Simulated assay, not measured.
Amino acid sequence: MNPSARAVPLLLAALLPLSACGIPETGVVEAGEPATGVLDPGVTSAPSESVPEAVPFVKVPLYFVENGSLVAVDRTVPGPTDLGSTLLMLFKGPDDKERGRGLTTELPRAAEAPTIRTDGTGVSVRLPRSAGSLSDTAVDQLACTVAVARLHQDPALGSAQVTVEQPGGRLAGRSSEDCPLGAATREAPPAPGTAAGPRTGTTGGGTGG
């Protein structure tokens, strides 16, 4: 018998078991897409969490009355603050700790917020009608608080002039140079071209209307 004729049955016999086991006769069959996003060993996936930034605290000088004299109190609050929020704190009066020190206020409780306008070193504060007529000491409290707050906003100004407009158009003016300084203001660096050194004493007697 021809040798090639004998090889055909042997080849068929070898292929039959493979077909019975379900193994395809073709090459490798790919199923699905390759895996993606595989992490390195020891690395776990977790959603990123942003850590909230801590709110800074600032010292805000407020002017109250002690034994008839104007005094500056440095109140520590979450900052930053602006002129409007500073005035709201002032009109609320001394807190429990400050009252315990004997501090008082001559400013009334404000039902409405004053209107504030700034123009360089000048600041104008228009009081609502509900504020009524203020005493000289109350005007000093208001003007000095606003003046020092303005200098904290822009230390390069060197000084600030505050005009308080009371109901009925009555005006009273004050300068930051006439205001006693609190610790926070004394520790602040002096503005360029100004002399360093704390001021002492109470405000000069302005015209409170």
Rank of each mutant, 00 (worst) to 15 (best):
F91N: 01
L90S: 03
G168N: 09
A31M: 03
I116M: 12
A184D: 10
L171S: 12
S19W: 02
K59E: 12
E53A: 15
V164S: 08
V139Y: 02
V164D: 09
A191R: 05
R117K: 15
Q141Y: 01
E177C: 05
V58T: 14
F64C: 02
A110Q: 11
T185G: 00
S19P: 00
R117M: 05
R186E: 15
S130E: 14
L87R: 06
T207G: 14
P167W: 05
P56R: 04
A131E: 04
P17N: 11
L127N: 07
R174C: 12
T81L: 10
G168Y: 05
G182Y: 04
S133R: 15
L16Y: 10
L127Q: 09
G158Y: 10
L181E: 15
R126V: 13
E112W: 02
P198I: 00
D74S: 08
G204L: 07
V139M: 03
S85H: 01
A14T: 10
A184M: 06
S176T: 07
G132K: 07
P56H: 08
F64A: 02
G209Q: 08
T105N: 03
T76Y: 00
G158P: 11
G79F: 03
S135E: 01
V28D: 11
L11A: 15
D96I: 01
D82V: 09
G27H: 06
A149N: 05
